[in-house]
């Protein structure tokens, strides 16, 4: 088994949770691919956290600037967006899309919100044509993004909790070690 990318979710359960989100999103919209991005505010970058479909084997952990394109607009506006007929478009995100070896004709993207914060973006590439252009589909995307946001929050909480748990384990081991040394030193009881 290959090691997860350093920017990917660090524990298997988190990875499984996010993977299930993108698998279901892809199935709901009959899409070629779906991704969840984490928004790294400090770097102003989006990081692939989970991918279903094209790019699944190599995109997790890859970063790209969050200032441009549809995903960028979703991050900065906090609004979902549905764009169809991109195949006619000569410039939009093509460089990035080609770097992922997939240039879609249609993209649906929604913010993953926690209160006032945008935690990331859910993107659905190349949904079936009937899923692309109605208000009902936009609603469905927003509804599912709500669930995806909850999943991403769980992952982020676990990310914060994991180092704390590791520190506590290390402290406990230190304590056990100290006790052991104390016992071995044969210090007589008073």
């Amino acid at each position: 088994m290959t090691e997860p990318h350093p920017d990917a979710a660090s524990d298997p359960l988190s990875r499984e949770l996010l993977q299930s989100v993108v698998e279901v999103a892809r199935a709901i919209f009959g899409a070629q691919a779906s991704s969840v991005f984490l928004y790294d505010q400090a770097a102003h970058e989006l990081v692939f956290q989970a991918v279903s479909g094209q790019g699944e084997d190599h995109l997790v952990g890859r970063r790209f600037p969050a200032g441009r394109g549809i995903a960028g607009w979703v991050v900065s506006s906090g609004e979902p967006m549905v764009v169809d007929d991109l195949a006619h478009n000569a410039v939009f995100d093509r460089e990035f899309a080609e770097s992922t070896e997939f240039v879609p004709d249609a993209i649906m993207a929604a913010p993953l919100l926690h209160g006032e914060r945008v935690l990331g973006v859910l993107e659905v590439l190349e949904p079936v044509p009937q899923s692309r252009s109605s208000l009902g589909e936009l609603d469905l995307l927003a509804l599912f993004a709500d669930q995806a946001a909850t999943a991403l929050r769980v992952v982020l909480d676990r990310r914060v909790e994991a180092p704390r748990a590791a520190r506590e384990r290390a402290a406990a081991l230190d304590l056990v070690g100290s006790l052991q040394r104390l016992l071995e030193s044969g210090t007589p009881a008073p």
């Binding site: 169809d84 000569a90 208000l135």
Partner: peptide, 21 residues
């Protein structure tokens, strides 16, 4: 009208899109 709207896009092109925007 905010559903399946044909709209101007980058590079002199058009797209179809949906939303209150």
């Amino acid at each position: 009208p905010g559903q399946n709207v044909t709209a101007a896009w980058l590079g002199g092109t058009t797209i179809r899109t949906t939303g209150n925007s």
